[in-house]
Design a protein around this nucleic acid. Sequence first.
DNA 1: TCCCTCACTGCATGCGTTTGCACGAGACTG
DNA 2: CAGTCTCGTGCAAACGCATGCAGTGAGGGA
Lengths: 332, 332
Amino acid sequence: MTTTRKVTSLDVAKRAGVSRSAVSRVFTPGASVSERTASKVREAASALGYRPNVLARAMLTGKSKIIGLVVAYLDNHFYPTVLELLSEALEREGYHVLVFMAAHSTDDVEDVVSQILDYQVDGLILASVSLSSDLADRCRASGVPVVLFNRKLEAEGELAVVSDNRMGGRLAAEHLISLGRNRIGHIAGWEGASTQRDREAGFMEGLRTAGLGLFAREVGDYRLPRAKEAARRMFDTPDRPDAVFVANDYMAFGVMDVLRSELGLRVPEDVALIGFDDVPSAAWPAYGLTTVKQDAEAMVSTTVDALLSEIGGTEVLPPAPLPVTLVRRITA
Amino acid sequence: MTTTRKVTSLDVAKRAGVSRSAVSRVFTPGASVSERTASKVREAASALGYRPNVLARAMLTGKSKIIGLVVAYLDNHFYPTVLELLSEALEREGYHVLVFMAAHSTDDVEDVVSQILDYQVDGLILASVSLSSDLADRCRASGVPVVLFNRKLEAEGELAVVSDNRMGGRLAAEHLISLGRNRIGHIAGWEGASTQRDREAGFMEGLRTAGLGLFAREVGDYRLPRAKEAARRMFDTPDRPDAVFVANDYMAFGVMDVLRSELGLRVPEDVALIGFDDVPSAAWPAYGLTTVKQDAEAMVSTTVDALLSEIGGTEVLPPAPLPVTLVRRITA
DNA sequence: TCCCTCACTGCATGCGTTTGCACGAGACTG
DNA sequence: CAGTCTCGTGCAAACGCATGCAGTGAGGGA
């Protein structure tokens, strides 16, 4: 194994007959270099295969050009989509994404965030994890901008990008009611999540406006097995709902499978089903899930804008909840 | 915005009344420190909220503890699963994952890999992207171990982790034949991929052994829209196959949707369908996709083992293809 | 008591960059 | 022709840490 010594700016400098500074300036956009030396340097650099060491640069400038992303799970197809979008958007801006998986538990997140900060990330995106406000403080203390994605902190002006979940819940209720259903149930996600609270609040609001109450309620924790159990509890009885709002699409798939395959119920004839998110597979004919669509692209670009502004030093005020829309397919 | 100065090892040293070296040693497992100073340092450190700067450490030691991962797409559910597993496994070993999205095109990959190397990653995982052997050389030249995931290079001893795709293809053929089908088609993935070539080769082998030929063939490029078009071309005709092997599950879902929803064909009665991968949603009752299972966990742990050994300096020989198994559900 | 050993500690150097500062050389101006 | 600007360049000092080396002291054996 021929140990290929790493080629540094000094090597390039020597070959081009200039100083290290000159080399550095050539690779620093907007620095003052004559075209003559610039071309000499570029030539030497490519001959030697030189590329600036991002880490070394990061030490001096304090800007690592890396963004930490904490995400709780990837099995819900919403998040891979988001990750892809996020990564592409950030790459376009010269940043890269360091990914961390975190369990739900707050102390795990605590630990994970500490680890991220060790990498001197320029910013932090917390997708779908709950952040103690204590932790939020610690991040701010390290001077690292944080933005929450698809989750908000009830506290003060924390930067958080969310859809209008309340309105979404309301739309779901109104739609089910417009279908003439009146025994309407709800399968909730994880109750620690702001998304869940807001969606349910809006949903209840919608029911109440129509003079209805909740017919049944179970908790699925945003997890597939739990959601299926919830569905069994809710529907394996004669006195079952004729419609259900499931707090996200991922769980809705499980619920639908239980309804059709296990319980032999017809969707939507026996029970109307509506989800939340509009993940790609919701549109697949096998499900054809009616759902409340979150605009992932808008969420991502809002997130990136906010984060980059903060990094740039601009104090940015919390973005407004993004609009959601009802996507009507066949399940409701 | 109170600019909180970054707390360095010197701050801790001063507060604990020791030298920077002492502090450093406390945070370096296996270094020689007395318990007395160690505890003083730890106390000072936690009081100040000190954590070693990974980037600075990386400069000295040459080990950044970061692994670059380039992945082509995340819409195929196989990859999010892998990403999650990979990230968890590496975190367990003290590494973290820097993610890069790459298009199919080789020159894009080229560019992406250059960017990754700028970050001084300790290792590189190329998932589902094709690597020119030229590029492989360049990586080796920078001394960064590379392992290909779910793709192999026909060339020499490149480190590549793959399933026994050939055997998988064979299993698929044998299964369809055992069902009594004899007009058997194939919807291929991207033909530039070794997985595609191997799966098809095995499949053809299986057919040939039974004295059969391929009844029809279309290309889906591992992309959903293409796969659906392929399915339409193949099946929207009276003279259609009675069974089809689709090169991965993701495309198989699309194919199935076309068969059932667009063409009104019954699966498996009219046409038997078998996929490849066994992504989680293949098991969902709405699809119940019969498929050849790749053992994602084994693939990941093999990948991590190989990569970490290489990083550790152990010359490791290319791992053998991992076993696949037929998972029989309802579509075939 | 003396010397050797050993566990610990501090000093100083270096990792590969960026960047403020000073300096030389032209290019202009009056 | 002297003075002022400007542009381009090199020097050297950081950035935050790890680590070889030398030095300290305590403990132990003879």
